[in-house]
Design a protein around this nucleic acid. Structure first.
Lengths: 189, 189
DNA sequence: AAAGGCATGTAAGGTGTTACATGATTGT
DNA sequence: ACAATCATGTAACACCTTACATGCCTTT
């Protein structure tokens, strides 16, 4: 019933939610845009689409059925949207931030239009807090006598990066809120 | 003759180069220190050590051969050091920075005491340049009309992160050079 | 007419993860 | 005595990557 909860499956779900797409469009997207940082080769994408289609999370409609070359356009389904929502709405954990760093950004990128503004705000707040927490938790290793100079420098870079990510999250939060305020004002006129 | 050129194999080589270690010590290291961000589970480490030992890149000496519990301490070998050197001395490429980001930091962390200062300096300079180049190359996507607000924010965060990494590399370069200057002065006295 | 992009897939292979299994040693 | 940690491994599984295969359509 459920496909493997891999990042790739969720990303495909998120991209198809934005608009219906074909496998090739997705392959090209991974190859030509920054989302390609999160992997995605033809050999992985096509089987994944098949599996998502088989479990009903997306629906592939064949365009030009009479043509020699079937162009399968995948649409989002209700259960697919639900599955995507569940993934996106998962609370950010320290473990996720510590190990699967790119996944968090990915979730943020794909939650627009799927989660409520409040959920997005909560996500960013938690993300910022967890990044700071994690940065603090690894800071103790700076005083580890075993640590080499290079180790120190690399660690300091890592800590700074986590702090920067927390800052980013807070700035993103402000941007999103100011956008929504603008909308609210506009619609109240 | 050669084991698989996986990141894990090189990290193990690098850690064993710092000092001889047992499998369990390595497992613990991955579990308790920030280097664990680069993965490393017992199920992967022990087979990897076996393979590195089999190909002669490390040598495992059994401590207390009479004991019931053999404690295998792995030492670096000449060919292992050569292999490690080759990996560390590889020039930083855009591809590496773009996709395998953690690997670059890893290489920096492990090159202390293995590469010459000039090689390290070259590494950091190239790293800084490549980070800036890559940041610039993805900047063009900011004007992509397809891009959503969340996509924009995530992308901007990514660009800033790469710029920050370039800054870090330049600062690390200064730190290392000042340390070496100090040494040179001290030794010339 | 040839080249390159469009479009979809399959097959083999390798690598890491999870989970399990075993027993020794040390501390309380 | 009991628990936790030390210490080393194996087996199943799942996922991705690379490479290959096929053929249409459009542009030069």
């Amino acid at each position: 019933m459920n496909p493997a909860p891999t990042t790739l499956n969720y990303v495909l779900l998120g991209l198809i939610q934005l608009k219906p797409r074909t496998g090739y469009e997705l392959v090209k997207l991974f190859r030509t845009t920054p989302i390609g940082r999160f992997s995605g080769s033809p050999g992985a994408i096509y089987p994944a689409l098949k599996s998502l289609n088989g479990t009903g999370l997306i629906r592939g409609d064949v365009e030009n059925p009479d043509s020699m070359r079937p162009r399968r356009v995948y649409h989002m389904t209700t259960s697919g949207l639900e599955t995507l929502r569940r993934w996106l709405a998962q609370p950010v954990t320290v473990e996720e931030v510590a190990s699967d760093e790119p996944g968090v950004t990915l979730r943020f990128s794909l939650m627009e239009g799927v989660l409520e503004q409040e959920e997005v705000a909560g996500f960013l707040k938690t993300f910022a807090r967890v990044c700071d927490e994690y940065a603090t938790s690894i800071e103790v290793h700076l005083s580890d006598p075993e640590m080499s100079l290079h180790g120190m420098l690399a660690l300091q870079g890592g800590i700074d990066a986590y702090r920067a990510r927390a800052q980013w999250a807070q700035q993103a939060l402000r941007r999103i809120q100011s956008k929504n305020d603008g909308k609210a004002v506009a619609s109240s006129n």
